[in-house]
Write a protein that binds this DNA or RNA. Structure first.
Lengths: 335, 335
DNA sequence: CTGTTAGCGCGTTCAG
DNA sequence: CTGAACGCGCTAACAG
């Protein structure tokens, strides 16, 4: 590996001059500039970034925390973030927290140890009290999940409550009378309390049910996360005395599991059971029946969150404190 | 931000001693060790990793190249890699190449500039001639995609040819007579030549067809990548004079697109058209009919690739040069 | 067992 | 316009 010294030697100039050429300083003799560039080419020189970082400060790297990258929802968000980051020559470091609070803190230390310029949370398990101290080491942005107490931290998300309200209202309007609710719940998550996101979603459901004066049985509440959870939930639901005729879920995976199991048991969807998903993943239209679901604008969320982060890193004025993107209900065949 | 100097000052020792404590050196007075740890706590000290890297060499970071992380196949592989990496306190830097050859080279420079200890290719567009020079800066591992000429580079993949041979034989045995083939082809990819992986797959199809003395019309060859491509391919196929009665595809997405469009046009699957996927993504069993597909052991591939990488980084003896994992055909309802 | 010393590769004054 | 000199934070070799 050649260093700046080697280049300087070969070009017959001092290291400072080489440095100036690299950083496009003005006031460098054209001839020497050419000589330096030539020497760099010949040696296949490239600057040691650790040294650059030690001297300067920025790493041009952003950490992105997700619970599991296999989840297409997170995949899409990360993809969008990466797009914006790449445009600005920033890199992403992928932090798969697996819903583990300690892992999350561990990754947060990347900020403390100056290995990244900022941290974006797409998943979130720790509370603000725990995270707060780290915020002094660099910017933090919430994308998707959020914490109410975290003042001053940009939040890019959808209006969870409104989305669930819309979905519930849709079912009520359609004439469904026993509407069950399935909370989004990541079993990997180590804490038992509901996230702000899950709380808000439930509030939307509750508000609609109350406005319509619908009874809403405690036994109609489920929780889950995966296709498997969906299958399990159908079984639970099928064992109930008063069976629901519709269910709103927290993810397309859960919905897919419920539909698969329901069909397997001879139920017709949406006649015997209406199912609403959440996310609008690419597979939603591949299911039979096609899934009615809430569209999450993953592209915009990811892009916007990264834009906010880059603005924060460059200490530009913040674009917005909280951004609620629209999440329209897409009515298809499952309701 | 406090440095090692601050800690030393506060603990009343030299910087070397602080360093020794951090690195768990033996031969440090217990009392001083305690004093140092206390000082570190009080100052909230954490070492500057750029400085550590500058001094030592390892970054404990591995770059993983994928064409697009939204693809659940890559998501699963990366997830598995991350799992192993995390166990050994290594981190992943996610490189979304978008099938762009220049992007790929750009990320390869991370190796050259010592920002990562190694690079794993899950996607691959450049040729060996281009990549080879970088291999002197650190270990490279191929996972999934590969290059035949790249001697000495570990390859973790499945036996592509065998997999396609099995799938084709299955259709032949079932009595299908006009078996079309859809190559995996990433439209993002900038080069027009087929990858070694795609080549090998096609060879498997061809071998089975020849052994069974089946005619195999040139017009029955398609290429694609996404659900949209699948839909397009069905339309093309539907316009053909002699229509195929079966098709083998390079991904579950393509297969899903073909099935969706076929059903929309009143075709019955598998009666009018049998469809075979590739990957066995979670959605394969959610489709109706359930998809016959080739299972890719993403978990093992990712884990094994990372294990190879870590072994290479630590200069341990290589486990194996090339590893072909089994990729069984899962026969379900679409054939 | 411990402090002193000497760089790792680079950017940035500060005098020319 | 250019080079000399200094230090970023840390580790390792060398004397004690």
């Amino acid at each position: 590996m050649s260093t700046i010294k080697d280049v300087a030697l070969r070009a017959g100039v001092s290291r400072s001059t080489v440095s100036r050429v690299m950083n496009n300083h003005p006031y460098v003799d054209e001839e020497k500039r050419r000589a330096v560039k030539e020497a760099m080419m010949e040696l296949g020189y490239s600057p040691n970034s650790s040294a650059q970082r030690l001297r300067g400060t920025e790493t041009r790297t952003i950490a992105v925390l997700v619970s599991r990258i296999v989840n297409p929802f997170f995949g899409a968000i990360v993809d969008a973030m990466d797009e914006v980051a790449a445009e600005h020559s920033y890199r992403l470091i992928l932090c798969n927290t697996r819903g583990n609070a300690n892992q999350e803190l561990h990754f947060l230390q990347l900020l403390q140890t100056k290995q990244v310029d900022g941290v974006i949370f797409a998943s979130l398990v720790n509370d603000w009290e725990t995270i707060r101290p780290f915020s002094e080491y660099g910017p933090i942005v919430f994308c998707n999940e959020y914490l109410r107490e975290a003042e001053g931290v940009p939040v890019i998300t959808i209006n969870q409550k409104q989305a669930m309200y819309d979905a519930t209202m849709h079912l009520i309007t359609k004439g469904y009378e026993r509407i069950a609710y399935c909370n989004i719940y990541d079993p990997l998550k180590q804490q038992s309390t509901l996230s702000a996101l899950a709380e808000d979603r439930f509030l939307g459901y509750k508000k609609a049910m109350e406005e319509a004066k619908m009874s809403c049985d405690e036994s109609w509440r489920f929780a889950g996360h995966s296709v498997e959870d969906g299958k399990r939930i159908f079984k639970e639901l099928n064992n109930l005395a008063g069976k629901p005729d519709a269910i709103i879920t927290g993810s397309d995976e859960i919905a897919a599991g419920i539909i698969a199991e329901a069909k397997g048991n001879g139920w017709r969807v949406p006649d015997d059971l209406a199912v609403v998903g959440f996310d609008n993943q690419p597979t939603a239209v591949l299911l039979d029946p096609k899934l009615t679901t809430i569209h999450q604008p993953t592209l915009e969320m990811g892009r916007e969150a990264m834009a906010q982060m880059l603005a924060a890193v460059k200490k530009e004025p913040k674009l917005a404190q909280v951004l609620y993107l629209a999440a329209p209900l897409l009515i298809r065949q499952s309701t």
